[in-house]
Write a protein that binds this DNA or RNA. Structure first.
Lengths: 130, 130
DNA sequence: CCTACTGTACAGTGTATGTGTACAGTAAAC
DNA sequence: GTTTACTGTACACATACACTGTACAGTAGG
Protein backbone atom coordinates (compact mmCIF):
# COMPACT_ATOMS: atom_id res chain seq x y z
CA UNK A 1 0.00 0.00 0.00
CA UNK A 2 2.80 2.35 0.78
CA UNK A 3 4.88 1.07 -2.10
CA UNK A 4 3.58 3.65 -4.54
CA UNK A 5 4.65 6.50 -2.28
CA UNK A 6 8.04 6.94 -3.88
CA UNK A 7 10.73 8.54 -1.82
CA UNK A 8 13.76 10.19 -3.31
CA UNK A 9 17.02 11.07 -1.63
CA UNK A 10 20.18 12.79 -2.84
CA UNK A 11 23.28 10.78 -2.05
CA UNK A 12 25.51 13.75 -2.90
CA UNK A 13 23.80 16.00 -0.38
CA UNK A 14 25.52 17.08 2.81
CA UNK A 15 22.39 15.96 4.65
CA UNK A 16 22.90 12.37 5.87
CA UNK A 17 20.92 9.75 3.96
CA UNK A 18 19.13 8.39 7.00
CA UNK A 19 17.98 11.91 7.90
CA UNK A 20 16.65 12.47 4.39
CA UNK A 21 14.66 9.26 4.73
CA UNK A 22 13.30 10.37 8.10
CA UNK A 23 12.38 13.80 6.74
CA UNK A 24 10.69 12.38 3.66
CA UNK A 25 8.68 9.82 5.56
CA UNK A 26 7.70 12.33 8.24
CA UNK A 27 6.16 14.58 5.60
CA UNK A 28 3.99 11.66 4.53
CA UNK A 29 3.15 10.78 8.12
CA UNK A 30 2.21 14.28 9.22
CA UNK A 31 0.08 14.83 6.14
CA UNK A 32 -1.69 11.53 6.68
CA UNK A 33 -0.69 10.06 3.33
CA UNK A 34 0.87 7.37 5.47
CA UNK A 35 -1.86 6.60 7.98
CA UNK A 36 -2.10 4.25 10.94
CA UNK A 37 -2.13 0.63 9.86
CA UNK A 38 -0.05 1.13 6.74
CA UNK A 39 2.85 -1.25 6.17
CA UNK A 40 6.17 0.25 5.25
CA UNK A 41 8.45 -1.59 2.83
CA UNK A 42 11.09 -3.72 4.54
CA UNK A 43 14.41 -2.11 5.32
CA UNK A 44 16.08 -4.14 2.56
CA UNK A 45 13.44 -3.35 -0.02
CA UNK A 46 13.54 0.38 0.61
CA UNK A 47 17.34 0.27 0.82
CA UNK A 48 17.72 -1.19 -2.68
CA UNK A 49 15.11 1.26 -3.99
CA UNK A 50 17.07 4.20 -2.63
CA UNK A 51 20.55 2.86 -3.25
CA UNK A 52 21.73 2.74 0.35
CA UNK A 53 22.57 0.04 2.86
CA UNK A 54 19.65 -1.54 4.69
CA UNK A 55 21.12 -0.56 8.03
CA UNK A 56 20.80 3.05 6.95
CA UNK A 57 17.06 2.55 6.42
CA UNK A 58 16.84 0.64 9.70
CA UNK A 59 18.34 3.63 11.47
CA UNK A 60 15.71 5.89 9.90
CA UNK A 61 12.89 3.54 10.91
CA UNK A 62 14.24 3.40 14.45
CA UNK A 63 14.29 7.20 14.63
CA UNK A 64 10.64 7.39 13.55
CA UNK A 65 9.75 4.58 15.96
CA UNK A 66 11.34 6.61 18.76
CA UNK A 67 9.15 9.54 17.74
CA UNK A 68 6.12 7.31 18.06
CA UNK A 69 5.18 6.99 14.39
CA UNK A 70 6.10 3.37 13.78
CA UNK A 71 5.68 0.03 15.43
CA UNK A 72 8.83 -1.86 14.59
CA UNK A 73 8.76 -5.54 15.42
CA UNK A 74 11.45 -8.07 14.82
CA UNK A 75 10.52 -10.40 11.99
CA UNK A 76 7.25 -8.68 11.15
CA UNK A 77 8.16 -5.43 9.44
CA UNK A 78 7.30 -1.83 10.13
CA UNK A 79 3.76 -0.58 10.63
CA UNK A 80 2.41 2.94 11.07
CA UNK A 81 0.61 3.37 14.39
CA UNK A 82 -1.76 6.01 15.62
CA UNK A 83 0.03 8.61 17.65
CA UNK A 84 -1.20 11.43 19.81
CA UNK A 85 0.63 14.65 19.16
CA UNK A 86 2.88 15.91 21.94
CA UNK A 87 2.26 19.30 23.54
CA UNK A 88 3.60 22.25 21.63
CA UNK A 89 6.31 24.35 23.22
CA UNK A 90 7.33 27.95 22.73
CA UNK A 91 10.92 26.83 22.13
CA UNK A 92 9.87 24.79 19.13
CA UNK A 93 8.16 27.75 17.55
CA UNK A 94 11.20 29.95 18.13
CA UNK A 95 13.38 27.25 16.63
CA UNK A 96 11.10 27.14 13.61
CA UNK A 97 11.47 30.88 13.17
CA UNK A 98 15.26 30.69 13.33
CA UNK A 99 15.55 27.78 10.95
CA UNK A 100 13.05 29.26 8.53
CA UNK A 101 14.95 32.55 8.40
CA UNK A 102 18.25 30.68 7.97
CA UNK A 103 16.76 28.61 5.16
CA UNK A 104 15.41 31.68 3.38
CA UNK A 105 18.74 33.50 3.78
CA UNK A 106 20.65 30.53 2.37
CA UNK A 107 18.41 30.38 -0.67
CA UNK A 108 18.61 34.12 -1.28
CA UNK A 109 22.40 33.87 -1.00
CA UNK A 110 22.22 31.28 -3.77
CA UNK A 111 20.35 33.76 -5.93
CA UNK A 112 16.75 32.75 -5.34
CA UNK A 113 14.55 35.85 -5.68
CA UNK A 114 12.70 36.87 -2.53
CA UNK A 115 9.40 36.99 -4.42
CA UNK A 116 9.72 33.33 -5.40
CA UNK A 117 10.54 32.33 -1.85
CA UNK A 118 7.53 34.25 -0.58
CA UNK A 119 5.15 32.58 -2.99
CA UNK A 120 6.60 29.18 -2.17
CA UNK A 121 6.14 29.86 1.51
CA UNK A 122 2.53 30.77 0.89
CA UNK A 123 2.03 27.58 -1.09
CA UNK A 124 3.46 25.40 1.65
CA UNK A 125 1.60 27.36 4.33
CA UNK A 126 -1.67 26.61 2.59
CA UNK A 127 -0.81 22.92 2.35
CA UNK A 128 -0.95 22.78 6.13
CA UNK A 129 -4.49 21.75 7.06
CA UNK A 130 -6.13 22.80 3.78
CA UNK B 1 30.15 48.48 14.33
CA UNK B 2 29.14 44.91 14.03
CA UNK B 3 29.83 44.22 17.68
CA UNK B 4 26.32 45.05 18.79
CA UNK B 5 24.84 42.49 16.43
CA UNK B 6 24.75 39.70 18.96
CA UNK B 7 24.73 36.18 17.67
CA UNK B 8 23.48 33.27 19.68
CA UNK B 9 24.12 29.60 19.13
CA UNK B 10 22.97 26.47 20.89
CA UNK B 11 25.87 24.21 21.82
CA UNK B 12 23.45 21.36 22.61
CA UNK B 13 21.90 21.44 19.17
CA UNK B 14 22.52 18.67 16.66
CA UNK B 15 23.36 21.42 14.16
CA UNK B 16 27.14 21.96 14.15
CA UNK B 17 28.30 25.16 15.83
CA UNK B 18 30.15 26.47 12.79
CA UNK B 19 27.02 26.02 10.69
CA UNK B 20 24.92 27.91 13.22
CA UNK B 21 27.42 30.76 13.02
CA UNK B 22 27.30 30.71 9.22
CA UNK B 23 23.49 30.65 9.23
CA UNK B 24 23.22 33.45 11.76
CA UNK B 25 25.69 35.71 9.98
CA UNK B 26 24.15 34.98 6.59
CA UNK B 27 20.78 36.21 7.82
CA UNK B 28 22.45 39.50 8.76
CA UNK B 29 24.32 39.65 5.45
CA UNK B 30 21.32 38.92 3.23
CA UNK B 31 19.17 41.43 5.09
CA UNK B 32 21.86 44.08 4.82
CA UNK B 33 22.23 44.57 8.55
CA UNK B 34 25.83 43.59 7.88
CA UNK B 35 26.72 45.70 4.85
CA UNK B 36 29.84 46.01 2.72
CA UNK B 37 32.68 47.62 4.61
CA UNK B 38 31.67 46.37 8.03
CA UNK B 39 34.35 44.78 10.16
CA UNK B 40 33.53 41.48 11.84
CA UNK B 41 34.90 40.69 15.28
CA UNK B 42 38.09 38.67 15.26
CA UNK B 43 37.77 34.90 15.33
CA UNK B 44 39.07 34.85 18.91
CA UNK B 45 36.75 37.59 20.08
CA UNK B 46 33.66 36.00 18.60
CA UNK B 47 34.80 32.57 19.80
CA UNK B 48 34.95 33.66 23.43
CA UNK B 49 31.59 35.45 23.06
CA UNK B 50 29.97 32.27 21.77
CA UNK B 51 31.84 29.79 23.92
CA UNK B 52 33.54 27.87 21.14
CA UNK B 53 37.09 27.47 19.87
CA UNK B 54 38.40 30.19 17.58
CA UNK B 55 39.09 27.65 14.87
CA UNK B 56 35.38 26.92 14.80
CA UNK B 57 34.68 30.59 14.09
CA UNK B 58 37.49 30.63 11.55
CA UNK B 59 35.83 27.75 9.71
CA UNK B 60 32.57 29.72 9.62
CA UNK B 61 34.31 32.83 8.31
CA UNK B 62 36.06 30.76 5.63
CA UNK B 63 32.73 29.32 4.51
CA UNK B 64 31.23 32.79 4.13
CA UNK B 65 34.38 33.99 2.37
CA UNK B 66 33.99 31.12 -0.10
CA UNK B 67 30.43 32.27 -0.71
CA UNK B 68 31.76 35.72 -1.51
CA UNK B 69 30.49 37.62 1.52
CA UNK B 70 33.76 38.24 3.33
CA UNK B 71 37.24 39.41 2.56
CA UNK B 72 39.45 37.47 4.92
CA UNK B 73 43.04 38.64 5.09
CA UNK B 74 45.80 37.25 7.25
CA UNK B 75 46.60 39.63 10.09
CA UNK B 76 43.94 42.18 9.22
CA UNK B 77 40.63 40.65 10.25
CA UNK B 78 37.42 39.96 8.36
CA UNK B 79 35.57 42.57 6.34
CA UNK B 80 32.22 42.40 4.56
CA UNK B 81 32.55 43.01 0.83
CA UNK B 82 30.02 43.88 -1.83
CA UNK B 83 28.88 40.80 -3.66
CA UNK B 84 26.82 40.32 -6.79
CA UNK B 85 24.17 37.68 -6.37
CA UNK B 86 24.62 34.48 -8.39
CA UNK B 87 22.03 33.37 -10.89
CA UNK B 88 19.03 31.59 -9.47
CA UNK B 89 18.43 27.99 -10.44
CA UNK B 90 15.31 25.87 -10.55
CA UNK B 91 17.04 23.22 -8.44
CA UNK B 92 17.52 25.67 -5.60
CA UNK B 93 13.83 26.51 -5.54
CA UNK B 94 12.91 22.83 -5.53
CA UNK B 95 15.36 22.27 -2.71
CA UNK B 96 13.77 25.11 -0.79
CA UNK B 97 10.36 23.52 -1.20
CA UNK B 98 11.59 20.16 0.05
CA UNK B 99 13.43 21.56 3.03
CA UNK B 100 10.58 23.87 3.94
CA UNK B 101 8.10 20.99 3.90
CA UNK B 102 10.48 18.85 5.95
CA UNK B 103 10.93 21.65 8.46
CA UNK B 104 7.18 22.17 8.80
CA UNK B 105 6.59 18.43 9.18
CA UNK B 106 9.25 18.18 11.87
CA UNK B 107 7.69 21.01 13.85
CA UNK B 108 4.18 19.60 13.50
CA UNK B 109 5.49 16.24 14.68
CA UNK B 110 6.77 18.06 17.76
CA UNK B 111 3.28 19.37 18.38
CA UNK B 112 3.42 22.81 16.82
CA UNK B 113 -0.05 23.73 15.55
CA UNK B 114 -0.35 24.21 11.80
CA UNK B 115 -1.98 27.58 12.29
CA UNK B 116 1.03 28.90 14.21
CA UNK B 117 3.41 27.64 11.57
CA UNK B 118 1.35 29.30 8.86
CA UNK B 119 1.35 32.66 10.59
CA UNK B 120 5.08 32.39 11.24
CA UNK B 121 5.66 31.62 7.58
CA UNK B 122 3.65 34.68 6.61
CA UNK B 123 5.67 36.80 9.02
CA UNK B 124 8.97 35.63 7.63
CA UNK B 125 7.71 35.90 4.06
CA UNK B 126 6.87 39.54 4.64
CA UNK B 127 10.30 40.19 6.09
CA UNK B 128 11.79 39.39 2.70
CA UNK B 129 12.12 42.74 0.90
CA UNK B 130 9.39 44.57 2.82
C1' DC C 1 62.86 45.47 16.62
C1' DC C 2 59.08 44.34 19.57
C1' DT C 3 54.62 43.62 20.99
C1' DA C 4 50.05 42.59 20.36
C1' DC C 5 47.03 41.66 17.64
C1' DT C 6 45.18 39.27 13.17
C1' DG C 7 44.03 34.73 10.28
C1' DT C 8 46.16 29.98 8.91
C1' DA C 9 47.80 25.16 9.11
C1' DC C 10 47.80 20.80 10.86
C1' DA C 11 47.71 16.98 14.04
C1' DG C 12 44.90 14.67 17.53
C1' DT C 13 40.33 13.33 19.67
C1' DG C 14 35.63 12.12 19.89
C1' DT C 15 31.35 11.55 17.41
C1' DA C 16 28.43 10.64 13.36
C1' DT C 17 27.47 8.16 9.30
C1' DG C 18 27.42 4.25 6.41
C1' DT C 19 28.70 -0.58 5.43
C1' DG C 20 29.68 -5.71 6.10
C1' DT C 21 28.48 -9.59 8.41
C1' DA C 22 26.41 -12.46 11.66
C1' DC C 23 22.53 -13.10 14.38
C1' DA C 24 17.53 -13.73 16.09
C1' DG C 25 12.40 -13.44 15.55
C1' DT C 26 8.14 -14.63 12.56
C1' DA C 27 5.24 -16.93 9.45
C1' DA C 28 4.07 -19.84 5.94
C1' DA C 29 5.26 -24.03 3.14
C1' DC C 30 6.12 -28.55 3.57
C1' DG D 1 8.14 -30.13 13.73
C1' DT D 2 11.42 -28.66 10.22
C1' DT D 3 12.59 -25.93 6.57
C1' DT D 4 12.65 -21.83 4.07
C1' DA D 5 12.38 -17.17 3.23
C1' DC D 6 11.54 -13.40 4.81
C1' DT D 7 11.66 -9.73 8.78
C1' DG D 8 14.41 -6.36 12.11
C1' DT D 9 18.74 -6.22 15.31
C1' DA D 10 23.56 -5.99 16.92
C1' DC D 11 28.13 -4.97 16.56
C1' DA D 12 32.70 -4.30 14.55
C1' DC D 13 34.91 -1.68 11.06
C1' DA D 14 36.13 2.30 7.91
C1' DT D 15 35.59 6.81 6.81
C1' DA D 16 34.18 11.54 7.23
C1' DC D 17 33.00 15.34 10.11
C1' DA D 18 33.20 18.68 14.06
C1' DC D 19 35.91 20.53 17.38
C1' DT D 20 40.14 21.55 19.93
C1' DG D 21 45.22 22.40 21.01
C1' DT D 22 49.17 24.19 19.50
C1' DA D 23 52.38 26.23 16.56
C1' DC D 24 52.95 29.23 12.86
C1' DA D 25 52.82 33.51 9.67
C1' DG D 26 51.07 38.15 8.29
C1' DT D 27 50.02 43.20 9.81
C1' DA D 28 50.12 47.41 12.31
C1' DG D 29 51.58 50.46 15.81
C1' DG D 30 54.74 51.57 19.71
Amino acid sequence: MADDLTLRIDLDSAVPAYRQIVDGLRILLVSGRLAAGAELPSVRRMATDLGVHFNTVAEAYRTLADEGWLDLRHGRGARVVSRDAPAASREHLEEFGHRLRALAAEMMAKGAPAAKLRSLMRTVAEELEP
